[in-house]
Design a protein around this nucleic acid. Sequence first.
DNA 1: CACCAGATCTTCT
DNA 2: GAAGATCTGGTGG
Length: 191
Amino acid sequence: MNPAFFDRPAATVAAALIGHGLLVDGIGGIIVETEAYDRTDPASHSFAGPTRRNASMFGPPGHAYVYRSYGLHWCLNLVCETGSAVLLRALQPITGLETMRARRGLDAPRLLCAGPGRLAQALGIDLSHDGLRLDRAPFAWLAPQGPVTVAATTRIGISRGVDAPWRFLVPGSPYLSRPLPRTKPGADPAG
DNA sequence: CACCAGATCTTCT
DNA sequence: GAAGATCTGGTGG
């Protein structure tokens, strides 16, 4: 992946990443769900300025930002323009299923990388990856294999910035952390 | 399937 | 002391 790819607004990068393959030490799959967080976004770790934890978000684009969520899960972000990043929320597992299963336990393939914490655990991500360049080992990237359909929705698990449509996903993918919400709740239940 | 609580670290008040 | 970009295992319909 060219470092210039990440030197753009996080929402642009988050949408463009859908369909790309990501491998960490040869293990990974196809990105099916991302979220964007930027410097002016009250939901972003960078909103209140630099801290020890978010230092990588204020470093150069094309590096990893890894943080601990709720005290026990790791989450993997890709740093974009200064103070912005893309949170990887779900992959369709492709390679290294055995290793992912060993790291995660007895999960069905559908759940191995369905959520930022699960994804990081399946890929073996921890704080040692924070700040690493994304264009060299252990990271490797694969271009989309064919046409990619991308939908944008509001983000998950936040209490501020809830209206920004900065969650990007493959509609109907069984590997999402949560399915695409219905645009008209209650309508057309026969679907 | 819905709801609830527990685990446990970083930041902010 | 409280909240947070989460996941798991329990209970109840």
